[in-house]
Write a protein that binds this DNA or RNA. Sequence first.
RNA 1: GGGGUGGUAGCGCAACCGGUUAGAGCACCGGCCUGUCACGUCGGAGGCUGCGGGUUCGAGUCCCGUCCACCCCGCCA
Length: 593
Amino acid sequence: MADVGRTHDCGALREGDIGKDVVLLGWAASVRDHGGCVFINLRDRYGLTQVKADPAVAPAVAAAAAGVKTESVLRVAGKVVDRGTNRNPKVPTGAVEVEATEIEVLNPAKTLPFAISDSVDVSEVTRLTYRYLDLRRPAIQRNVVLRSRVASLVRNYMDAQGFLEIETPIMMKSTPEGARDFLVPSRVHPGEFYALPQSPQTFKQILMVAGMDRYYQIARCFRDEDLRADRQPEFTQIDVEMSFATPEAIYEVTEGMFAAVWKTTLGIDLPRPFPRMPYAEAMEKYGSDKPDLRFDLPLATVTDLLAGSSFQVFANAAAKGGVVTAMRVPDAESWSRKDIDDLTRVATENGAKGLLWLKVKPEEWQGPAAKFLAPDERTALAERLGIAPGDLVLVVADEAGGKARQALGAVRLKVGDRLGLRVQGCWAFTWVTEFPMFEWDDRERRPTAVHHPFTSPVPEDLELLETEPLRMRARAYDLVLNGTELGGGSIRIHRRDVQQRVFKALGLSEESARAKFGFLLEAFECGAPPHGGIAFGLDRLVMLLCGASSIRDVIPFPKTTSAQDLMAGSPSGVDPAQLADLGLGIVAKRPAE
RNA sequence: GGGGUGGUAGCGCAACCGGUUAGAGCACCGGCCUGUCACGUCGGAGGCUGCGGGUUCGAGUCCCGUCCACCCCGCCA
């Protein structure tokens, strides 16, 4: 039987298989030697099956089994037998075991750096250094499987909707705007570079001009910026573009896609259509363009109520065109000094000068600002915020209104954590719409695109382009889930004259625009259909689906926060001859190792 | 670039106010054990306390620097 391959995987055998001769291949997850009988749990991606080596049946096999080291790869041949009264209800195959007649060690494992188990805590350094071991853990394998299923569902859905999956270049042209590019030197053209795509944006627009009508791609994207729990330098987007698209058409298509994914992977029917919220409302009520709507507790603007306050912090913010924003936390007047200090830290980390608080006791209000609040101010505050006895009221004031709201928005999330309101298994989707077209960049001293430079303005705002660009609204939209930006898109500009005016507003000279995007501008003069699209972060999507706290847990081979691959050891120095071929020399302070 | 948390045995951790020979668990090695299922049990081995300096009679512990990991801000059209 030595030449017989695998007859079943390690998760397959059930009561109905009793009596069959089988061959299993897998890893020895545990070896339990009782001095006579030896039990081995054989594991593969599909499950776990217990193998028994009984000296009364096959003494040599039992002896061999006793010497098997954990995580060795085994070939086990034997008969499926009933476990009788010794069944293990914790595993699907627990009714049966394989009584081994042969055990062959295909490859012995040395003692591993850590145990392959979901219950053993291992530091991320160790996990990433030995990623092939980490990926053996059932919990991580589930994530990999889920990711594969989601990608497959997306392809099936998009295909059914008439979209074409079209590849775009990985080596493309470096463009201004947006994130720092990863550059690839050209050997054929020394001193010149390709750039890895931050997204396939221009190419998918070109595909619309080419008449492809409906495009999608599960596309790898690269951005050379600092990392976070939900940001990696290379990540995967579900990239979509449609000709003759309206925002409604794009909402329809993508809501259908998410509904299909949720239905198939979680068995959940997502209510549709997803709610929508203008950007301005999101900022005012949640202090964020990606509000977590799993819980309410909104912020309220109270600048007008406190403009005449004797408390200078409020009066100053109001006088200088800023904002006073407040939120109530029900039944929280008993929160400790430390609780409030924690919230204050969050506020200051997010740009606030401080966090003011009021404890609403039945007989009085307490807190650093309480004594400055006139009776009518209290009444007005209580009315606008819906204050009830027992509430904790949190207030941030700042001359820069956006800063105040952003800071209190961050505090709101912390409060949600503290109250246990940011629960898994609750899916609060929302579209955020009517984004501004531009925002002011202090460093560059010019407007920059909030979405990207190809985004169409709301038509009636176009006339503001040369006069008050910062007041323009864009035909852009983000999809937000539980406070995470899952993706965003826009209706694009499809006319050369409009695109050139937008470039100009962004401070891009005509010749520079031609040098960087000449091909796109010319394409727009050759019969470009109106078009629009959207792109979703596949990593974040899968992260949320499987309840992971970092996208590193859903990317098979992620990088650390310093953008290194601990397993492979990248980035690394290269041979001087390689540099010479490329016409490159190293001038950095830290030479190649 | 900035702020925070951490780095001690193969692994995850402990070590009080700076004070004996840096501990226990898991893993590992050896013995015993025929129904375990993260088997049990008896014994053993295992340490440059991230790295470099400093303070001190004495440093895992205090100070300075540095490296690494993670979280956050900036940044991420």
